[in-house]
């Protein structure tokens, strides 16, 4: 893991619950900011996917939360946190195909059970912590300056 270095940019984006129709806005803004900082296209692409999936998860399944973008010279970090309900079995949600999405969300094309696997796949480091009744925190780190076509 790279040593902690100077923060080039830090932004906090609140994500309200049930506002999935607006979701996607944070990932659009994150990609715009990263491009503005001259991040590699592959880093922008991966961060966009991680952010979109995380944003959808907060909007669809939680009581709301926030996304923090931290850009350092070597890494892009995305921190997702929400106010619950929390995830009882983390290993289960990492399984492709597992989903707790209600029917209405599935009809809109969500709930494929690929959100968290997609986030993990597009991150170089991926940590998820959760406590039922409290909430979930995800820390996704993407290394800059390397090409990892996934």
């Amino acid at each position: 893991m790279p040593a902690e270095t100077a923060i080039l940019l830090r932004r906090v984006f609140p994500v309200p619950p049930d506002a999935f129709d607006q979701a996607g806005q944070v990932s659009t803004e994150v990609r715009r900011l990263l491009r503005g900082l001259g991040a590699e296209p592959e880093v922008v692409r991966r961060a966009g996917i991680v952010c979109f999936e995380g944003e959808m998860n907060i909007a669809l399944y939680t009581k709301g939360g926030r996304i923090v973008l931290v850009v350092r010279p070597e890494v892009v970090e995305l921190l997702f946190s929400d106010r619950g309900p929390g995830i009882a079995d983390i290993e289960l949600v990492k399984q492709p195909g597992y989903s707790t999405a209600p029917d209405w969300a599935r009809e809109l094309g969500f709930g494929a059970g690929m959100g968290i696997p997609n986030m993990e796949k597009n991150s170089d480091e991926f940590h998820i912590f959760s406590r039922v009744g409290q909430g979930t925190v995800i820390r996704a780190t993407i290394y800059r300056g390397r090409h990892d076509p996934s």
Binding site: F20, A23, G24, F52, L108, G109
Partner: peptide, 15 residues
């Protein structure tokens, strides 16, 4: 090619 036509489709397409 999709049946979905809500706002998130635009975000995913752009992404």
């Amino acid at each position: 090619i999709t049946h979905q036509r809500h706002l998130n489709v635009v975000a995913v397409a752009k992404l």
